[in-house]
Design a protein around this nucleic acid. Structure first.
Lengths: 409, 409
DNA sequence: CGGACTTCATTCAGTTGCTTAAGAATGTTA
DNA sequence: TAACATTCTTAAGCAACTGAATGAAGTCCG
């Protein structure tokens, strides 16, 4: 068991004097496979039973962990340990193209309270920040939980966690705002510590957190909202890349001489089969548009909303919409295969509103694409699943990042 | 500065009680930027000056590091530290399709002695193993170096470091041999500790080692020999994937409905533009075959050798050969862009005999492909370079793996 | 030339987080 | 009730690192 999914490193330097972290290993092991006894923890983490005992005592004193029962053995029964779900909490905020979602999440990833707001929270940065702060207060107040237990706020958007702004034209009122500025300003406004993260990366962390993925699994969370991204977790650590823009799954090249993408390159997944492209195609196909109830005279809704409408129509049997999605899915499947091959991924999780709406098409397409080479050459066993909480995965992941960065200390 | 490029983890568990490793950080820092003084090391590694001082003393006692001068400052001059290039050595062996290469390498990655042998060392496993052992002894004996300084043998092949065998039909006499068996058997035959590694991964480690790449750079070594692979190093650690088959760069999908690849999928880079495909195309094009001196009646040589001939012809101005390589390069460039976008790579190094022969075509093609989106969207600065020692990069990397796994302790 | 100053490096005491080894607690089985 | 099995805790020791003070080796300047 290695280190767990990481928040952005505290600073350029390695944590001074940090040890491999019995605390962290133990908390992560319990999270992934609770309930566990001390002896089991020792086996899993590779620590001594003595070390586990001491560390667990501290965790019990802090209230992070609780004893919840015993299982009989040949000798003294094991005392089982679990995380106290509400011992520590964090707020996750997801700034998406078509909605703003707030969740209050405990150590086990369970959603304790949630709040949905329209995407547009105000006309300028200041009013948006004030609205965010007010909503966070409302969420905490409404939950009935002691705010002292809340460790901070994680905020998630389609941009990188630092060093840049969202690349496409979502979030118009925040345009030009860099991740670190957003974090600092929101921290000043709310008084909470704030972490900023990319939506796909956060979704991956959230999935790692709530779906009890083990640190031994290499996994990718494919996220479809207004665009497509991927969060990649290797040995329990989220990959962010040198400049915090890893996971640009939408800009994998799938056609060397394909159409020009807005990113400046050609044949990207996004331009060939991204949700925006699907929506555009549906609006241009009179039958598909009618199937999905897309009004050509009123092109105003968000990509996510339109895509959802297309997916609903396809589920209801509409052939043109279904064909559009099937076509998109073949590209997404090839891109998924690329990622799986390049990184030797064990587990692919589909998440975000796009895949939540259309997983019945995309999931099987990916599995069909992976199957032949898996059987013939790689002899691996890649699992493709759909997130159980695709709609809130990113917000939960944002909160999980905050929790983890604090529980590590 | 994080942990350095990793040898395969000692065992499933985390090294029991391993500390973040002042030793490792310091050695890695010196390797990447020697000469350095103790105070500089403290700054770079984040350790205290006291800790650096103590650790360096031990390294001096062990002879790993030497003091090599002073630089004046305002006060007491700094004593500069360097690695002793021949304090510890390791043998790297590269089992390639068309040759077997041995290198004896010191701590700084410099090649102290080398030996080249034909690819086919024998007709069965036993005689191959005996030939390997004999050649390793010859190399060591001929170098005039005390064998006690040699830490072991790294062996590199086109297969995974464990859990599998080379996927294509190279190395016919070793067919069916698994990585861990090869390592164990060679260890028994030679008496040295043996590590097995994939050729592309080893090339990446070798490049990290000799080209003084810093742990802060995310980089990919693209390796072209009889096929195409990639070794990826993130935060100073080589990515191997859950089942040791990461870096299957040759099986990125670049044409969703492309031709069927031998891996069982479609449109893979390998089948569209891999060296084997280039060679086949050249042999089928009468003019290109003539340009490269490929005899259609005698199709026996290796892919690597034929590809080299094509590249030489192209360098000499042969238009058909050049066109074939340009065509291949456009696919490779798109695949490189995919990797760069997905993992936020800073540095791409081209290595292996294939790229060594044809880097003049592939390098610029990759840069041309990356440029527009870099300028328009990503605002990053990806460096594309050619390995200075492409021919021996893998063997050097194999040796580097051995050195590192020992110097960490 | 000698003292002040600057910077590099080391020493020493104290803390932390583990390890090993022994032992206490808590059950089952005969 | 004694013997056993297993889980968990305690105690002593070690290794690595930190912080703060000290020593060492130069430059600068009157």
């Amino acid at each position: 068991m290695r280190e767990a999914v990481g928040a952005p490193a505290p600073a350029g330097r390695p944590g001074r004097g940090r040890r491999p972290g019995a605390r962290e290993s133990i908390l992560d092991a319990i999270r992934a496979a609770e309930p566990l006894s001390r002896v089991e923890l020792a086996k899993i983490t590779g620590l001594t039973e003595a070390a586990v005992s001491m560390t667990v005592r501290r965790l019990l004193e802090e209230g992070l962990v609780v004893e919840t029962g015993r299982t009989p053995t040949g000798g003294k029964p094991r005392t089982l340990l679990q995380l106290d779900p509400i011992a520590r909490l964090a707020v996750g905020v997801h700034l998406d193209e078509d909605a703003t979602t707030y969740v209050l999440t405990g150590q086990t990833g369970g959603v304790i309270a949630r709040l949905a707001r329209p995407a547009s929270l105000g006309d300028d940065r200041d009013s948006i920040l004030r609205a965010l702060a007010a909503d966070i207060d409302t969420l905490l107040a409404g939950s009935g939980i002691d705010p002292a237990r809340c460790l901070g706020v994680g905020i998630v958007w389609p941009g990188p966690h630092s060093g840049g702004t969202p690349a496409d034209d979502t979030l118009p009122h925040l345009r030009g705002l860099r991740g670190e500025e957003l974090g600092r300003q929101l921290s000043e406004t709310t008084g909470w510590p704030v972490l900023v993260e990319n939506d796909a990366t956060a979704a991956a962390v959230g999935e790692y957190w709530v779906a009890r993925v083990g640190p031994d699994q290499t996994f990718a969370a494919l996220y479809m909202g207004g665009g497509i991204g991927a969060g990649i977790v290797v040995e329990g650590r989220a990959m962010r890349g040198g400049h915090a823009s890893a996971g640009e799954f939408g800009h994998l090249c799938l056609e060397v001489f394909g159409p020009e993408c807005w990113c400046g390159s050609r044949g990207c997944l996004e331009i060939l089969a991204g949700p925006r492209t699907v929506v555009t195609a549906a609006r241009e196909d009179r039958i598909a548009a009618a199937e999905a109830g897309l009004d050509p005279a009123q092109p105003s809704r968000t990509v996510t909303a339109d895509f959802g409408a297309i997916a609903r129509a396809a589920r209801a049997g509409a052939p043109h919409c279904r064909a559009l999605l099937e076509s998109s899915a073949r590209y997404v499947a090839a891109a998924a295969e690329t990622v799986v091959n390049l990184l030797d991924i064990d587990l692919v999780v589909l998440t975000g509103p796009g895949f939540a709406a259309a997983s019945a098409i995309y999931g099987p397409a990916i599995m069909r694409r992976l199957a032949p080479a898996d059987a013939k050459t790689w002899h691996r066993n890649v699992t493709v699943t759909v997130s159980l909480a695709a709609a809130t995965a990113s917000a939960t992941g944002a909160a999980a990042l905050v929790l983890q960065s604090h529980l590590r200390a």
